[in-house]
C-alpha cells in the first residue's frame, strides 16, 4: 500500500486516532448494560489502526501494533477464557460474572470478571481486524 501523500489526512489521523482509541475504551467500559462492549470497541480500535495504515502505510501500522496481529488473537482468547476461571475456583458455573465494588470518595467503581472477558474480546477483534487490513494491503 502506498503511503498517503495527503498532508490533511496524515495530520488529521494524528488527531483522530487517539480520539478513536479513547472512545473505543469508553465503549468497552460502558458496554455492560448500555450499547457497546468488547466486540464493538475492538472494531473501533481496529478502525483506528486501519486509518493509520491508510495514512502512514502498513509497515508503520505493524510497528505501531508492536506485536504480530496473531499474538493479539491468541492473547485475547486467553484473557477472555481466564475471565471465566475465577468463577470455577469459587465453585460457580464457568463464566459466571463475579462483581467487586469499591469506592473512591463517593463514586462506586464496579469491577467484574465480565470486564476481563470483554477485554479479551476487544483484543481478539483488534487482532483479527488488523490481520485482515494487513493481508488486504499485501494483496494489492
Amino acid at each position: 500500500m502506498i503511503i498517503s501523500l495527503s498532508l490533511v489526512l496524515r495530520t488529521a489521523t494524528r488527531l483522530i486516532m487517539p480520539l478513536l482509541l479513547i472512545f473505543s475504551v469508553y465503549m468497552l467500559l460502558r458496554g455492560h448494560d448500555k450499547p457497546g462492549g468488547g466486540f464493538i470497541a475492538g472494531l473501533m480500535a481496529g478502525t483506528a489502526f486501519a486509518l493509520y495504515a491508510v495514512a502512514y502505510g502498513t509497515e508503520a501500522m505493524a510497528r505501531l501494533l508492536r506485536f504480530e496481529p496473531h499474538a493479539f488473537i491468541g492473547g485475547g482468547l486467553l484473557i477472555a477464557l481466564l475471565g471465566g476461571v475465577p468463577a470455577l475456583l469459587l465453585g460457580e458455573a464457568f463464566l459466571t460474572g463475579l462483581w467487586w465494588t469499591f469506592y473512591i470518595g463517593d463514586i462506586a467503581v464496579k469491577l467484574s470478571t465480565v470486564l476481563i472477558f470483554d477485554i479479551g474480546v476487544y483484543i481478539v477483534v483488534l487482532g483479527v481486524s488488523s490481520t485482515i487490513v494487513l493481508m488486504l494491503a499485501e494483496e494489492t
Partner: peptide, 14 residues
C-alpha cells in the same frame, strides 16, 4: 476450555 486455552497459547507462542 483446556484445548481452547492450549490453542490460544499456541497462537501466542508459535
Amino acid at each position: 476450555v483446556v484445548p481452547l486455552l492450549a490453542g490460544g497459547l499456541a497462537v501466542l507462542v508459535p
